[in-house]
Lab assay of single mutants.
Amino acid sequence: KVILLEDVKGLGKKGDVVEVKDGYARNFLIPQGLAVEATKGNLKEL
């Protein structure tokens, strides 16, 4: 699961917690600054 930092077409809006494949999160969303891993600490910051 990841928390979206920006609106991502076809996935969700900023602040949404979405389930995506590990590779998509690690190789695209997180490096592009579009999402962060949905850890307990990150979820509390919402």
Rank of each mutant, 00 (worst) to 15 (best):
K1G: 04
K1F: 10
K1V: 10
K1I: 10
K1N: 08
K1H: 13
K1A: 10
V2C: 09
V2G: 01
V2A: 02
V2E: 00
V2K: 01
V2P: 00
V2R: 00
V2Q: 01
V2M: 09
V2W: 09
V2L: 06
I3P: 00
I3S: 03
I3Y: 06
I3G: 01
I3F: 05
I3M: 06
I3R: 08
I3N: 02
I3W: 03
I3H: 04
I3T: 06
L4N: 00
L4W: 00
L4H: 00
L4M: 04
L4T: 00
L4D: 00
L4G: 00
L4R: 00
L4A: 00
L4C: 01
L4S: 00
L4V: 01
L5T: 07
L5A: 04
L5E: 02
L5V: 07
L5H: 03
L5C: 10
L5W: 03
L5S: 03
L5R: 08
L5K: 09
L5Q: 07
L5I: 11
L5M: 10
E6G: 09
E6F: 12
E6L: 14
E6H: 14
E6M: 14
E6T: 15
E6A: 11
E6N: 11
E6P: 00
E6Q: 13
D7W: 06
D7P: 06
D7G: 05
D7Q: 05
D7T: 11
D7I: 04
D7F: 08
D7L: 04
D7N: 10
D7S: 07
D7M: 06
D7R: 05
D7A: 09
V8N: 01
V8Y: 05
V8H: 04
V8C: 07
V8W: 03
V8R: 03
V8G: 00
V8A: 02
V8S: 02
V8T: 03
V8D: 01
K9G: 13
K9M: 13
K9P: 15
K9R: 12
K9S: 11
K9I: 14
K9Q: 15
G10E: 07
G10A: 05
G10C: 15
G10D: 09
G10W: 09
G10N: 12
G10L: 05
G10K: 05
G10I: 03
L11S: 02
L11D: 01
L11F: 07
L11N: 01
L11C: 06
L11H: 03
L11E: 01
L11M: 06
G12P: 00
G12K: 00
G12V: 00
G12D: 00
G12L: 00
G12A: 02
G12Q: 01
G12F: 00
K13V: 08
K13I: 11
K13H: 14
K13S: 10
K13G: 08
K13A: 13
K13M: 07
K13D: 06
K13R: 11
K13E: 09
K13Q: 12
K13Y: 09
K14R: 12
K14Y: 04
K14G: 04
K14L: 06
K14D: 02
K14E: 04
K14C: 08
K14F: 04
G15V: 00
G15L: 05
G15A: 03
G15D: 05
G15P: 00
G15M: 05
G15I: 00
D16I: 04
D16H: 06
D16K: 04
D16Q: 13
D16R: 04
D16L: 06
D16Y: 06
D16A: 11
V17E: 07
V17T: 08
V17Y: 09
V17A: 04
V17L: 11
V17C: 06
V17D: 02
V17H: 06
V17Q: 06
V17R: 05
V17I: 11
V18R: 05
V18K: 05
V18Q: 02
V18S: 01
V18H: 02
V18E: 01
V18I: 12
V18Y: 03
V18M: 07
V18G: 00
V18L: 09
V18W: 02
E19H: 12
E19Y: 11
E19T: 11
E19S: 10
E19W: 14
E19L: 13
E19D: 12
V20N: 01
V20F: 03
V20P: 03
V20M: 03
V20A: 03
V20G: 02
V20H: 01
V20C: 07
V20R: 01
K21V: 13
K21I: 13
K21G: 14
K21E: 15
K21P: 14
K21A: 14
K21N: 14
K21H: 13
D22Q: 09
D22S: 13
D22P: 11
D22C: 10
D22V: 12
D22G: 08
D22T: 10
D22I: 09
D22R: 07
D22H: 09
D22L: 08
G23E: 15
G23T: 12
G23D: 14
G23R: 06
G23S: 12
G23W: 13
G23F: 11
G23N: 13
Y24K: 03
Y24E: 08
Y24W: 10
Y24C: 07
Y24A: 04
Y24P: 03
Y24I: 09
Y24M: 06
Y24R: 03
Y24H: 07
Y24D: 05
A25G: 11
A25H: 03
A25I: 06
A25F: 08
A25S: 06
A25Y: 04
A25D: 11
A25P: 02
A25K: 07
A25N: 05
A25R: 03
R26K: 13
R26E: 14
R26Q: 14
R26I: 11
R26W: 12
R26P: 07
N27Q: 12
N27P: 00
N27F: 08
N27K: 10
N27M: 09
N27Y: 11
N27C: 12
N27V: 05
N27G: 11
N27S: 13
N27D: 14
N27T: 10
F28M: 12
F28E: 15
F28T: 12
F28W: 09
F28C: 09
F28G: 08
F28I: 14
F28D: 08
F28A: 09
F28N: 14
L29D: 02
L29W: 02
L29E: 02
L29S: 00
L29I: 02
L29F: 02
L29R: 00
I30H: 02
I30P: 03
I30M: 04
I30Y: 11
I30E: 06
I30A: 02
I30C: 05
I30W: 03
I30V: 12
I30N: 02
P31G: 15
P31N: 15
P31V: 15
P31I: 13
P31E: 15
P31Q: 14
P31D: 15
P31F: 10
Q32Y: 12
Q32L: 13
Q32I: 05
Q32T: 10
Q32M: 13
Q32A: 14
G33N: 10
G33S: 05
G33T: 02
G33V: 02
G33P: 00
G33K: 08
G33W: 03
G33Q: 07
G33C: 09
G33I: 02
G33D: 04
G33E: 05
G33A: 05
L34W: 04
L34I: 10
L34T: 03
L34G: 01
L34N: 02
L34A: 04
A35T: 01
A35G: 06
A35P: 01
A35M: 01
A35V: 04
A35W: 01
A35E: 01
A35K: 00
V36E: 08
V36S: 06
V36R: 07
V36T: 07
V36W: 03
V36Y: 05
V36K: 12
V36F: 04
E37F: 14
E37Q: 11
E37N: 09
E37M: 12
E37K: 07
A38L: 07
A38K: 05
A38V: 05
A38P: 07
A38G: 05
A38C: 13
A38M: 08
A38N: 06
A38S: 08
A38F: 09
A38I: 06
A38E: 07
T39N: 14
T39C: 08
T39S: 09
T39R: 05
T39Q: 07
T39M: 07
T39W: 03
T39G: 08
K40Y: 11
K40P: 15
K40M: 13
K40V: 14
K40W: 10
K40A: 14
K40H: 13
K40D: 15
K40E: 15
K40L: 14
K40G: 09
G41A: 15
G41Q: 12
G41P: 10
G41V: 14
G41W: 01
G41H: 14
G41I: 13
G41C: 14
G41R: 14
G41S: 14
G41K: 15
G41L: 06
G41N: 14
G41D: 15
N42F: 04
N42D: 12
N42L: 08
N42T: 07
N42M: 08
N42H: 08
N42W: 01
N42C: 08
L43T: 08
L43H: 06
L43A: 05
L43F: 06
L43S: 05
L43W: 04
L43V: 06
L43R: 03
L43N: 13
K44L: 15
K44C: 11
K44E: 15
K44S: 10
K44V: 14
K44M: 12
K44R: 08
K44W: 03
K44A: 14
K44T: 09
E45Q: 13
E45N: 14
E45C: 09
E45M: 03
E45P: 03
E45G: 12
E45T: 03
E45V: 02
E45R: 07
L46E: 15
L46V: 15
L46A: 15
L46H: 15
L46P: 15
L46D: 15
L46R: 15
L46G: 15
L46F: 04
L46I: 15
L46T: 15
L46Y: 04
L46K: 15
